[in-house]
């Protein structure tokens, strides 16, 4: 069941678009915002509102990068793996993060705190390497800065 808040926000989005389907991506993001990811039930309930079948909505949901169809940690780290960041030391940053969190790309830390995902160019090429945690962008990353950041998000290790 969609929560009242979810339903309310989705209704608002529906007004922005010419067709119900067009509001789909935005609506998926609404569900994701409240649940962290989009579960099967979310797909079913939402597809009914959008006049789509679950198969149709899921075809859209699974296309896009930032719709999570599997559970993610409390915080999602999107680490830019594209050229400028790569040149500026992405690999070092990544291996530091992996060591700290004990996980690889696409995984969630055992404490459920972080999910680590690669992302194409974050548009911070002049401040590379860069990453996002949830909705915040961080740049000019160094191993020290990363330690400080993940601590800020609750890392205790």
């Amino acid at each position: 069941m969609l929560s009242e808040k979810e339903t309310h926000e989705i209704e608002k989005e529906l007004k922005q678009y010419k067709t119900r389907q067009a509001a789909g991506v935005e609506a998926l993001k609404i569900i994701q915002r409240s649940r962290g990811w989009v579960d099967d039930e979310g797909i079913k309930d939402l597809s009914a509102i959008l006049g789509m079948t679950p198969d149709e909505l899921d075809g859209v949901a699974t296309f896009y990068n930032l719709i999570f169809r599997k559970p993610v940690g409390a915080h999602v780290i999107l680490i830019c793996d594209t050229v400028s960041c790569w040149v500026m030391g992405y690999e070092k940053i990544l291996s530091h993060l992996k060591n700290r969190l004990g996980i690889g790309l696409g995984e969630t830390s055992p404490d459920g705190l972080f999910t680590l995902l690669p992302i194409p160019c974050l548009g911070a090429c002049d401040k590379a390497p860069a990453m996002m945690i949830d909705e915040e962008l961080y740049w000019n990353l160094t191993p020290e800065k990363i330690d400080e950041l993940i601590k800020r998000y609750g890392w205790k290790g």
Binding site: D40, T53, P54, E56, D58, G59, F63, N65
Partner: peptide, 19 residues
């Protein structure tokens, strides 16, 4: 028909049902 579709992206595209 509306219960068969294509899912995912790039060379992971999948043809089947939602479940």
């Amino acid at each position: 028909g509306r219960d068969l579709n294509v899912f995912a992206c790039h060379n992971h595209v999948y043809f089947g049902r939602h479940a």
